[in-house]
Nucleic acid binder design. Sequence first.
RNA 1: GCCCGGGUGGUGGAAUGGUAUACACGAGAGACUUAAAAUCUCUUGCCAGUAAUGGCUUGUGGGUUCGAGUCCCACCCCGGGCACCA
Length: 813
Amino acid sequence: MEKNYEPNKIEPKWQEFWEKQGLYRAQDFSDKPKTYLLVEFPYPSGAGLHVGHCRSYTALDVIARKKRMEGENVLFPMGWDAFGLPTENYAIKTGIHPAIATKQNTETFKRQEMALGLSFDWNREINTTDPAYYKWTQWIFLKLFENGLAYKARIPINWCLACQIGLANEEVVDGKCERCGSEVEKREKEQWLIKITEYAERLIADLELVDFPERVKTQQVNWIGRSEGALVKFPLVSSHNFIEVFTTRIDTIFSGTFLIVAPGSKLIDEYQDQIKNWDEVLKYREAAQKISDIDRANEEKDITGIELKGITAVNPATNEKMPVWIADFVLEQYGTGAVFADGHDKRDFKMGKKYGLPLKTSLVPDDESITDKVKNLEICYEGEGVLFNSGQFNGLTSAESRPKIISWLQENGFAESKINYKLRDWVFSRQHYWGEPTPLVHCQKCGWVGIPEKDLPVELPNVENYKPTETGESPLASIEDWVNTKCPKCKGPAKRETDVMPNWAGSNWYFMRYCDPNNAERFAGPELLKYWMPVDWYNGGMEHTTLHLLYSRFIYKFLWDIGEVPKELGPEPYKKRTSHGMILGEGGIKMSKSKGNVINPDEVIKEWGADTLRVYEMFMGPFDQAIAWDTKGVRGVRRFLDRVYNLTNRKLIDKQSVVNDNLERLLHKTIKKVGEDIENMKFNTAVAALMILVNKMEEKEEIPKEILKKFLLILGPFAPHMAEEIWHILGEKQSIFLSGWPKYDPQFIEDQLVNLVVQINGRVRDSVEIARDVSEGEAQALVLQSAKLKQWIEGKEIKKVVFVPNKLINFVI
RNA sequence: GCCCGGGUGGUGGAAUGGUAUACACGAGAGACUUAAAAUCUCUUGCCAGUAAUGGCUUGUGGGUUCGAGUCCCACCCCGGGCACCA
């Protein structure tokens, strides 16, 4: 009787079978070689699992299954990064407690992941909102605090006047509140910051130790943005003070003719009495606050600025007086929030021309044709060159001049070398509810004091209203009996910190918790960390490159520095990082509820089966690139799996009774290719190779059982339920995943006959079948007899012959 | 705007500097069927030609090379990130 492929019957059956057998339990301290495979744990949103999650998880599931078959002790865990804004906003809207929404969402996610047949070790499931987990998130914050890496500073936040709530940048659209459309203003708030900048140098240098894609390394290096330069003091005429500027172009200091300060800079406030047009300055400052930094730094936009009337600085190199202006293209956060302006910077140049400010140049490029134009300020030259107008430094190149100018200015206290980073310290406070409480109290006598470890976790109390207070404090601030407490040090009255931590706090160390998820004494025990860490392979989205990936490297390094992570593990948490591409909706646009183009994995599984979803997502395109969903492609994959299943309806024979050389050859080539492709995450070509093998098997009246079985072994990681089902149809009793990964026989890999391509002047004119490893002379003799070639070669002189063994021969005539 | 990717048939894509278009989708023709669906077989980059065959083709323009989708330069378009979304 013909058997039919019914995924909805076989998939739950095998999922239960695997779970019962505990096939995916990672064994602590096993003698087998360990492999720690990690996917970014999801934020369990109300929308349910996205097909994009499925792509990343299936990919590492394929790798995990293969590595287990290869005899490795695999740790492949899953958890929930469940604190965050969307759940809180949902609570504000509906009144449903975030903990309840989180519970529902994680249950949905877990059910959906299980339905995909992912081989996670569910015994190690973690949740960042679990007090037993965030106890250690708080503990890590305290360690940062104790080690002087946490400090308070006034930082602007987005504040919606109408909603009375702080907004994430994402919630501000064109300067307006995303929910109510009213104006958003900047408010300064005292917030906790973490000194990630202290680790800037090491975060760059240690990238050499890890196997990350080059684009990820470049993005991180550029994000940290190290630049060598100088701090230069420009004295003010009317006081003993000065304005300090960071520059990487000290070589152009002699052409500095005016200063530009960021409009929000605190430098200005100090001189309020001296600034004659203070009202105007305030107006400009307010306007600048409404423009995003991205727009302010846009090099194409119109330059605006106003003079700080009454303030004049002096260029310490030339002793010439310099007007001082403010302009919004100078950003408060970068360097010192002030620059000196000259004719060698496009924006300075534009500003000078626009407002009739003095402009000078002091270096000329190698290209003499534009020398005069640069000198006459007809064009702006931003490159390096040879100095003029620069006193004793005339004639030096930019690179030669920089150290000399710095030390010359340094003698008089006007300059010093300085390395600056674009990277900023990490704002660690949120005026929200759904996050980890910051474990600090403020005492009148003792200042900020950490909660002792024995009193952790500081549990998140219940509130009735999830909205921040009218003054912009976290909702926790309104719980008086929680806020008012005793100072752990002096037992005097103290107030708790009411801001909670950002979502990153829980996700920057979670990979260590998986090693020892139930430890009540430590964030993870040193022996287990030594056994499982570092993460051997971490896959995630490109969009996390500069935040989560960088933050978690930093936190790991910090814990390693203070000895909480065993020294022998080394300074990097992730050995290897890979990135998946996003899955877009049909037509290449982002999937979103509002566009109604969201693909729900539940429905795909219901209609086609989990194996179809898995294989489709692996086959749809290159794993590291964004790709659009295509339902027709899903159907194609299901057709493929149907054909695989139908192989069991063929006549299956014992191998000994038949010589099936071609099929055997192809099998071994496929084993090799699929194995290598999985390691290189070239899942799409691995699936294509499996399809080619199936097409070949289908051509045969009889299929040797051994060949079918080996095919099932390499299909297994992609379509585990299908492989297990057929494995058992063939009479096996044990799980297919307890069988080893098949080995290929090298003698079947190389063909004895090769196709030699014949080219004339690099154009293909013919091809011939010849024996492998034929010499150039033999090949030439053989090829030149061909009648086809005669028409091209006759009467022409062969100038050169290029021969690539087993590939091609090219005649240049 | 700045930083990082990408651009190949009608579509998703394949291709250690060496036969561009594997595999799949779609489309067309046929078989099976009362019919449709499903399934199976064949065709399918574009142009000319009955065919053999020839010419053209990897976003655009230039360069290196016996040979370029692949390397170099410039430009155009699309995607990701830009620090309180995760």
